[in-house]
Design a protein around this nucleic acid. Structure first.
Length: 581
RNA sequence: CGGGAAUUAGCGCAGUCCGGCUAGCGCGUUCGGUUCGGGUCCGAAAGGUCGCGGGUUCAAAUCCCGCAUUCCCGACCA
């Protein structure tokens, strides 16, 4: 492609709304353009990179035995009603109706559609297993689209679904996909880490997310300093504290703490550490109130609590609810004697109490006295609280430095990551309600066991930019680069144009995709555009080199420069490309 | 869902408080010249429903009301 004929327009200034580097650079390099919130156009340069990601995915999946299909964007509402997601999915689901008033949604994911396909086509165990995928534009009406391609509303996704006769076969395929995903991200030039993940609203059993480690990531990744344990913060656990050593503790005693409500205020007043406090929170779940006690330095994970409570909806109780439920104002609640307070005020209310594991490690605690403006000290956890197997749970987010749950020496570290892929064992979540069944070898009808596997294609491209850039622009890994070589022609004599044309033809002839900057621009403009766009190897042809019969090259990533004779230059460039990949 | 801010040329912004006549600047674009190995310099030009609707006024980008869109922050840890 000749630059002068191409639809490439670069910008010197950052777009006003770009908060992350990938958004900034992809727009400035003329690869994408925002049309409206969370919706982007891919320009020729951007589409080339997007297609490269797509083709790596396609190639690896096909090799792993998957088959590509293409499902419709619009899904009839009835299918979503069969799985009950029509009611559950909420406002993220874009719903629309046609001229007859029939309801549809723009598919944000396609479990229902694929189930409908498979149940019509597959009827025997002999036709299983199947692993079907598609690469298609999705729409999710995010509350807050942001970060360019990282959290768009319209986005390109690879979504795959597998169907099996039993869980063993699903396990086998899950491992197959796990390995395939690792290869895909490796081939994209990304450092991705597989982490244990919460299965969330889609339902199902085990699940791994593939995270690209990047400061701008929206997810928190927990990993061990010593072993290969890694998990999403929502899922991460730590080795639980040992019960504190027994020691003499004086009797529980009330302390006047007027107006001191927060852990930090009370801890400072009592001259103790926050982790020696017991924090008491009241949640309102669909089934009733849940009182959660944790060490003062911990944060409750609402996701963990929701899973423990098996609650559909969960929120912190309001101040008013807390008072009418316990009779104690917010800020002065504690586990000691709480039961009696509640019995006085809320006869018949459904409620239960859980302790986070972190409470177990406190020997002598301070906490609310269940009386306005008072706290209690000298609470001996083993003496004054009724901890048991049933009420001790893992309900807090881990914090930096917690002991690893898998090995004895490691400490947990926290970092941020971009979720580029996600694999899930779904089990019967969709196959049962949607009646996706097969006849087994005894002629008995059985539900299929399902798995689901996703990759954010555009997000993978953005993640690559997050991981590969410098202050001049993007540094594409060769696998994702829109072109392999950026041929920069500096002078415009006939002789040089002819040489450039020769090199250009020879590159393409050797299977090397070249962008030829033939514009009548100053050298600086071209160099800067080349660095911004980030093609891995720049080849410079100008009168300076031509006199010597050479051209120059620059490796974008290392800025390493060199010269090569015009004759045989293509071989040298091919070698550079392979080395720079 | 709550709070804040913004909306003026393709992009980035000034002008709005304190209303005033041809609405500016930088980048980009077009034309002419100059220069030519890291975003040359000079000159000329094109390009605007000042987000939309209503109101106040002799006069509105500017003041008032409504709406839309966009961006940011927050969503309660007792």
């Amino acid at each position: 492609m000749k630059f002068s004929k191409s639809l490439i327009h670069t910008y010197r200034e950052a777009p006003a709304d770009a908060e992350v580097i990938s958004h900034n650079l992809l727009v400035r390099a003329g690869m994408i353009r925002k049309v409206t919130a969370g919706i982007y156009e891919y320009l020729p340069l951007g589409l080339k990179s997007l297609k490269k990601v797509e083709n790596i995915i396609r190639n690896e999946l096909n090799r792993a035995g998957c088959q590509e299909v293409l499902l419709p964007h619009l899904v009839p509402g009835e299918l979503w009603k069969e799985s009950d997601r029509w009611a559950k999915y909420g406002k993220e689901l874009l719903r629309l109706s046609d001229r007859h008033g029939r309801e549809y949604c723009f598919g944000p994911t396609h479990e229902e559609t694929i189930c409908d396909l498979v149940r019509h086509v597959v009827s025997s165990y002999k036709a299983l297993p199947q692993n079907l995928y598609q690469i298609q534009t999705k729409f999710r009406d995010e509350i807050r689209p942001r970060f360019g391609l990282m959290r768009g509303r319209e986005f390109l996704m690879k979504d795959g679904y597998s169907f099996h006769v039993d869980h063993e076969d699903l396990d086998r395929e899950y491992k197959n996909m796990f390995a395939t995903y690792k290869r895909i991200f490796e081939r994209c030039g990304l450092t991705a880490r597989a982490v244990d993940a919460d299965t969330g609203a889609i339902g199902g059993k085990s699940s791994h997310e593939f995270m690209v480690i990047a400061q701008t990531g929206e997810d928190v990744v927990v990993y061990c300093s010593a072993c290969d344990y890694a998990a999403n913060l929502e899922k991460a656990s730590c080795r639980t504290a040992n019960v504190g050593a027994a020691q003499e503790i004086s009797a529980v005693q009330e302390v006047h703490t007027p107006g001191l409500k927060t852990v930090d205020e009370v801890a400072a007043f009592l001259k103790i550490k926050p982790q020696q406090m017991i924090k008491t929170l009241v949640y309102k779940a669909d089934q009733g109130f849940i009182v959660v006690c944790t060490a003062g330095d911990r944060e409750v994970s609402e996701i963990k609590l929701q899973n423990i409570a098996k609650a559909e909806a969960l929120r912190l109780a309001t101040d008013e609810e807390v008072v009418s439920f316990t009779g104690v104002p917010v800020g002065f609640l504690g586990p000691v004697g709480l039961d009696a307070c509640i019995r006085k005020t809320a006869l018949g209310a459904q409620w239960w109490l859980v302790y986070d594991h972190s409470v177990k490690g406190i020997v002598e605690a301070a906490t609310g006295a269940n009386r306005a403006d008072y706290h209690v000290v000298h609470v001996a956890v083993t003496r004054d609280l009724k901890l048991s197997e049933d009420n001790l749970v893992d309900v807090c987010n881990v914090i930096e430095g917690d002991p690893c749950p898998h090995c004895s020496s490691g400490q947990l570290k926290l970092t941020r990551g971009i979720e580029v892929g996600h694999i899930f064992k779904l089990g019967f979540r969709y196959s049962k309600p949607m009646k996706v069944t097969y006849l087994d070898n005894e002629g008995k009808e059985q539900p299929v066991v399902m798995g689901t596997y996703g990759i954010g294609v555009g997000r993978t491209m953005a993640a690559s930019v997050e991981q590969n850039h410098d202050d001049k622009g993007i540094i594409w890994p060769r696998a994702l680069a829109p072109f392999d070589v950026h041929l920069i022609q500096l002078d415009h004599t006939d002789a040089i144009t002819q040489e450039a044309q020769k090199i250009y033809d020879a590159l393409w002839g050797a299977g090397i995709e070249a962008l030829w900057d033939d514009r009548d621009e100053r050298a600086g403009v071209k160099f800067n555009d080349a660095d911004l766009i980030g093609i891995p190897v720049q080849v410079i042809i100008g009168k300076r080199g031509l006199q010597k019969g050479t051209l120059e090259y620059k490796i974008r990533r290392t800025s390493q420069k060199g010269e090569a004779p015009l004759l045989g230059a293509v071989d040298i460039i091919a070698g550079l490309l392979n080395a720079a990949a």
